[in-house]
Design a binder for these strands. Sequence first.
DNA 1: AATCTCGCCTGAAGGC
DNA 2: TGCCTTCAGGCGAGAT
Length: 270
Amino acid sequence: MPELPEVEVSRLGISPHLIGQHIEQIIVRHKQLRWLVPDDVHLAEGHKVNHVRRRAKYLFIDTDVGSIILHLGMSGKLRIVNSETPVIKHDHVDIVLTNGVCLRFNDARRFGACLWQSVNDPEIGMIAALGPEPLTSDFDGQRLYDLSRTKSVPVKNFIMDNKVVVGVGNIYANESLFIAGIDPRKAAKKVSKKSYLELGDIIKQVLAKAIEQGGTTLKDFTQADGNPGYFAQHLRVYGRKGQACEVCDSEIQSVTLGQRNTFFCEQCQK
DNA sequence: AATCTCGCCTGAAGGC
DNA sequence: TGCCTTCAGGCGAGAT
């Protein structure tokens, strides 16, 4: 399940193979992803890739006429192959370049997406509505504090809200709250300003570190699996229900918040 | 306006 | 071995 760091590492991995190359053809084998892949993606054919950008967990492959937007969802994987490479199960979309290189999108669960944004059209609504990037100065603990004053939802749900800040998925929400010592069940408006200021910094640190580690362990995207996978990163609470807390040795608890599995230490997180 | 719930998917894991 | 059930989860859409 790609979180923001995985998406950023994917961007870094595929960019050098795409930038400056021309798109020869886009092959859609299975258009029924999270949303139907629009026929307009073919408008990119014949155009040069200018940039590969990331916004939240969306990747944008920019051309002069518009952008192909990719989202990896839960199980999406990108790999760079030769266009002759035989397809495997769940290879849904190919972006074939004129030099024979191909960006291949594979997604077993099809929670991912492939969309089209024309340069002439207004920005797709759901993209326009996204909150700030966590690793920019547009996001900090002060913002968390300010926006949380009227929110009674659990703080974990709050920091996973895309309008508050993008790119904080379930794993990093759990980990960040553990490091910050905040009980994930606590109402967002009940969390102190001091705690939010710390949490803001922690979210930045956790995400930045994961990207850094992903960069160093980056798998070759031309390999068969094409998957940057999980970083050699130590998770302190996520998935550790029933195990001992590393700090205080008490048992890690789990509850469901916002229909997502939530892990925390009752001793360390208040 | 804020919050809650549902649903899209398939593969892995666990129970019998 | 193999079938069945459960769980995982990003995130928009629609209901409350």
